[in-house]
Design a protein around this nucleic acid. Structure first.
Lengths: 341, 341
DNA sequence: CTCGTCCGTCGAAGCGCTTCGACGGACGAG
DNA sequence: CTCGTCCGTCGAAGCGCTTCGACGGACGAG
């Protein structure tokens, strides 16, 4: 179609020759950094299309000192909410593309050395860090490297950083407020696996704090306990919870893999939902929708979009807020209701 | 520590000066493309470490005509097996790093234009294409662009390509053989969502073909039907299946999200597992392990490793087989057994 | 002892882009 | 009509690397 041999790089010089202008003019047409007459512009753009020109990414990065690539540092460890991560990643890629950036996938197990390498080699202009822990070793490194970064979740000390997250504390409060308003006086949080709390992962700790705070404020009894993954483990943890606290009538679940098993197990333990026990989850909305579950959705896409938008503003040298918390909302479905007690 | 201002690029010239050699010598030490004396080599490497040198990725790409980056083109559509995708992605990144390559994340919704852009801008040296359909529009494009690629799954025409996949046909056969050997004469495949078959996705079609082939060969009745996602949908589809075919005693499940609901629903329909109905799944092994499920594991990591290894061989100009099928294995657990009939 | 070979290193060129300074020419002000 | 301004374009330099050819010098063969 274009007549060129596939695989051969079309250069800016080819375009310039084809359009009868200087290479710098082509560059200015493409970047818009200088005014170019309408006729020249359209001639150049026609040549770009005719030749199927794409600027060489490496050459561009070298000359402009911008890679137009951001890194997405993913965790991929036990207890991560996998579908949430995927939807988040999609939103990140899509939004980044809209800002003319690509996304490099980095796994956390390369650790701080990975950040060093990526920053040192100018492979990326900035990073998105997921699954940030309260005391995260990568955070000081980010500061030291002067590498623009946006964190998903937030560490204990967020000075000089940019963090985006659902307001999990508020989400925990919302769940308890909803249950309390329906008359529940004893509630329980069935949370993430113990390892997640041990790592000091922010969302788990903050949710728990929110549940406790709201319970304290509203005069509700609240117990909280971790929950391991897998149907058998969930069932076991739920049974243990109800054995220790048989009078719990409101359940907050923050563990994707537990949602299905919890709803399946409760009837077997003689608890009908929502008549005997109300269940509220903090989880992806589709998951909740499938089961008619009352929930506070985790807005993965929105977090991804916001994170990229913030990073782009940082890359442009604009100031950004240290902490951006997304307001949670509770969607009422079939698994929560009043209590007879 | 290193004494340099953070964010300032350390260049090969800095290293050369520090070590008292020419820049080209540093380059040769790092690439190993010419013999360098042991003393020079160690002096250079010491300087590299002292200065914290990382070669500028763009400059390297420009000069060497290699980006040392591969693209991972992910689907992210309905019916994809999300955890499998994640584990696959991790294996890809890890293996690529071992070959000194990074991974660019591309979503399929950028479509063929994305491949054009990526190839044209020399951002990547090759691509890994996931979720390949039997008639995939990206496949001819790959050929046209002369862009080295490895496909996960395989299209109808694999001429000149490199495809890696679990041998899903054989996996389907294995499941039926296992059930037949245990005495089951009527089996059913509860498969992927209908949309997945409609798209012509290879793994779904091949599994179904394998189930049918083995059933025919062994004189077993086999019915196959798609299964939508979500507990309610799964339950509905399973009930419909058993209503139409009440004498089915062997169930093959190829749908991650259906595994839990199927095991939860069967007892409610009066079928104990494995006494009344044996269940065999094709799914990630952890998922099966959690439920004590007999299964043919989908070896996501192994597929990822193989795919990267093949791509690296292609990038080195070595010949690679058109189709690489991984041999499936059946792991017997608690959900399958003999039948009384 | 001499010559050829080859090992180890160097310098220069070039990869494809961006950006800076310069410079015609059009056009408006006086 | 003249001069100054500014718009639109050009050419050159430079980004940091790899790679090629060249060339000392050591060393072995004769």
């Amino acid at each position: 179609m274009s007549g060129r041999t596939p695989g051969e790089q079309v250069t800016i010089a080819d375009v310039a020759r084809h359009a009868g202008v200087a290479a710098s003019t082509v560059s200015y047409v493409l970047s818009g950094k200088r005014t170019i007459s309408a006729t020249t512009r359209s001639r150049v753009l026609a040549s770009v299309r005719a030749l199927g020109y794409h600027p060489h990414a490496g050459a561009r990065a070298l000359a402009s000192r911008k890679a137009n690539v951001i890194a997405l540092v993913l965790p991929l460890r036990t207890g991560m909410q996998v579908p949430v991560v995927m939807r988040f990643a999609t939103a990140v890629v899509t939004t980044a593309r809209r800002h003319d950036h690509d996304v490099l996938l980095v796994t956390a197990d390369e650790g701080p050395a990975g950040l060093h390498r990526i920053a040192g080699s100018a492979l990326v202009d900035g990073v998105l860090l997921m699954d940030v822990e309260l005391e995260d070793s990568r955070v000081p490194l980010l500061r030291e490297l002067a590498l623009p970064g946006v964190l998903i979740g937030h560490p204990a000390d967020s000075t000089g950083l940019a963090c985006v997250d659902l307001d999990f504390r508020r989400a925990g409060e919302l769940c308890v407020e909803h249950l309390a308003a329906a008359g529940h006086r004893r509630v329980a949080l069935l949370g993430a696996p113990a390892a997640v709390y041990d790592r000091g992962t922010g969302f788990a700790h903050r949710t728990r704090a929110g549940v406790r705070a709201a319970a304290g404020r509203l005069g509700v009894d609240a117990v909280t306990r971790p929950c391991e993954e897998g149907p058998a483990a969930v069932r076991h943890d739920l049974e243990a919870l109800l054995a220790d606290h048989p009078d719990v009538t409101g359940l907050v679940v923050q563990n994707e893999s537990a949602v299905g098993p919890v709803l399946a197990t409760l009837p077997l333990l003689g608890r009908r939902v929502p008549r005997d026990v109300s269940v509220v989850a903090i989880c992806p909305d589709e998951l909740a929708e499938q089961s008619g579950l009352t929930c506070v959705p985790v807005p993965a896409e929105e977090v991804g979009r916001q994170a990229v938008a913030l990073l782009m503003r940082r890359l442009n040298g604009e100031p950004v807020p240290e902490v951006t918390l997304l307001e949670p909302h509770l969607t009422v479905r079939d698994t929560s209701g009043g209590t007879g007690r």
